[in-house]
Computed example of a mutant assay.
Amino acid sequence: MAENTVSEIERMVITRVFDAPRELVWKAWTDPKYIMQWWGPKGFTAPVCEMDFRVGGKLLCCMRAPDGQEGWNAVEYHEIVLHEKIVSSMYFSDSKGNRVDPAELGIEHEAIEGAYDVTIFEDLGNGQTRLTHIGNEPMESAKNSGQLEGWNETLDKVATVVAELAQTK
């Protein structure tokens, strides 16, 4: 069986418009203090978030489920264009940031070979910003596994953080 290439597969794409300037949305997305407030879907918390935000740097976050179970994610940064774009790869990890096979955690996760996550921050004018996140997983798989729903819940939490930042600006 031939492997599908990145261009042949419909990737998971999530878009959200925020009523805030692009710099504030960027800040919420790239400052560990704010990431801890939104990392994970509804009901989940992030008690630990360490970040070296530069090309070649990493993010390491602990996501705690409502039942207290913890899981770790790491993100490696491949490209950063200030206030415009982040290209990264996210994976399941241990608490030290070492890659862990999702199957070892009992998680079914389908990733597209050679695909990176891409997050785009677009200034729409009038104080609005469109965030588009293109994942490295197929859209159908993301829908079936609940990832799409989880990402939408996560973006709801990002919206709360952005709204709070906009009020204090």
Rank of each mutant, 00 (worst) to 15 (best):
92 F>T: 07
115 A>T: 04
50 E>M: 11
161 V>G: 03
65 A>F: 09
60 L>R: 12
57 G>Y: 07
143 K>W: 11
74 A>P: 00
150 G>A: 13
102 P>V: 10
59 L>Q: 11
108 E>S: 13
154 T>H: 01
73 N>P: 00
111 A>T: 12
147 Q>V: 12
102 P>I: 04
74 A>K: 05
161 V>W: 00
103 A>F: 05
100 V>W: 05
148 L>F: 10
53 F>K: 13
58 K>M: 13
84 E>W: 03
61 C>E: 07
85 K>Q: 14
78 H>G: 09
109 H>Q: 14
92 F>L: 08
145 S>A: 11
118 V>K: 00
151 W>H: 03
83 H>M: 13
49 C>A: 12
106 G>W: 10
60 L>H: 14
130 R>W: 04
121 F>D: 10
138 P>W: 03
144 N>V: 12
112 I>D: 02
88 S>K: 00
89 S>F: 04
149 E>R: 06
99 R>G: 01
86 I>F: 01
111 A>L: 05
155 L>S: 03
63 M>P: 11
127 G>Y: 06
126 N>C: 07
152 N>T: 06
115 A>S: 06
125 G>V: 05
159 A>K: 01
147 Q>G: 10
99 R>Q: 12
97 G>R: 07
157 K>Y: 03
70 E>T: 15
111 A>N: 00
136 N>Y: 00
138 P>G: 04
161 V>L: 05
66 P>Y: 11
159 A>Y: 03
157 K>G: 03
140 E>Q: 10
162 V>L: 07
122 E>M: 08
74 A>Q: 08
135 G>S: 04
66 P>G: 15
71 G>W: 08
85 K>Y: 08
109 H>S: 09
150 G>C: 13
60 L>A: 11
119 T>I: 07
162 V>M: 08
86 I>R: 00
